[in-house]
Design a protein around this nucleic acid. Sequence first.
DNA 1: ACATTAATTGTGT
DNA 2: ACACAATTAATGT
Length: 213
Amino acid sequence: MIHELKSNYRQFFEEDLIEEIARVGTIKEVPQGFHLIEIGQYVRYMPLLLEGAIKIMRDDHDGEELLLYFLEKGDTCAMTMTCCMGETKSEIRAIAETDTKLIMIPIEKMESWTVKYKSWRNFVFESYHVRLMELLETVDKIAFLKMDQRLVEYLKDKVKVHEDQIIKSTHQEIAYELNTSRVVISRLLKTLEHKKVVELNRNYIKVIGFDHL
DNA sequence: ACATTAATTGTGT
DNA sequence: ACACAATTAATGT
């Protein structure tokens, strides 16, 4: 565990802190599709990502959902950081996008570490900033880009977090994550196929390249 | 191996 | 948005 921590977080944390994380944290490995947290659940741990990716979703009142952003290696969840004080319910839903390995730190530790370790303070502020920027980026996409552009951005993200040109999703799943209808996605994908950007198959999409855009 | 059903995708209105 | 056809995968017998 120490070794994995160091390879991912040595740039951020001092030696003492890494050892303490190793002492109080627990390793958790979850399979693809695992629901890490639902809206309304209490946050008791702060996750540090070691491997894999997590998608963060926002749900609206009646079953509509929207993908906010992906968390990748070296990231942590900004929601948990707002909840240092007291018991707070999660505002978001976190689902493992790939098989994922993470360290769970009890949130009680966060407060004392903030006082004790400078590197921890920096890390928390830094992560908070990065998350906020990503969220802004997503907001911009939703506000200013048409659906065809959003779909392209989505495909790029997928390829990145999976490190794979093959996207194993159905049109319906993509539609849910972008909060639109399946038919719209099917049509847009079809035109992307004509532009030689993707190759459509049942249950998966092969990304050729975004050069022809 | 075959039939039935369900899920996925394509297309027209 | 809705409806429907076509294709493919999954399941049972």
